[in-house]
């Protein structure tokens, strides 16, 4: 069976998908993943998950974040200088997320 592999670079980071392996069970999947996906890449931890257990929904099926204007959800809509540095940091992250989201919607990313 196929196992999806998620790697965490260093403690505190997120586990992100990095590939998969064929293996007959979870223990073997971990053994194979350790060599196939972590023998060179910096790795603090690996997860393996049976592929069949993964559900998926993608942009073919849905429009993530909706199709009508949802700008009321975004900090950038409120036209004020951020009150504090942490508010500014949040707004920057949102602006970047919205830029990338639009790029996905428009198909140029």
């Amino acid at each position: 069976m196929i196992w999806e592999v998620f790697r965490q670079k260093k403690a505190g980071d997120y586990h992100t998908h990095c590939g998969n392996v064929h293996a007959p069970d979870r223990e073997m999947a971990l053994l194979f993943a350790e060599v196939q996906h972590a023998r060179r890449m910096p790795t603090n931890s690996l997860w393996v998950v049976p592929k069949d257990e993964i559900g998926e929904v993608d942009t073919e099926d849905v429009a993530f974040g909706g199709t009508t204007d949802k700008s009321y959800r975004w900090a950038m809509t409120y036209n004020f200088e951020a009150a504090a540095e942490e508010v500014a940091a949040s707004e920057d992250e949102q602006a970047e997320a919205e830029r990338q989201r639009k790029a996905v919607v428009d198909g140029d990313d």
């Binding site: 009321y72 959800r73 009150a83």
Partner: peptide, 27 residues
Amino acid sequence: WEPYAHAMDKVCFEEGFHVKHGEAVLH
């Protein structure tokens, strides 16, 4: 505690909207 920090990443990402929305109502 890593899961707490990860939750904070997303909370802080969203929270800027709340504070600015609150400021807009005050204004």
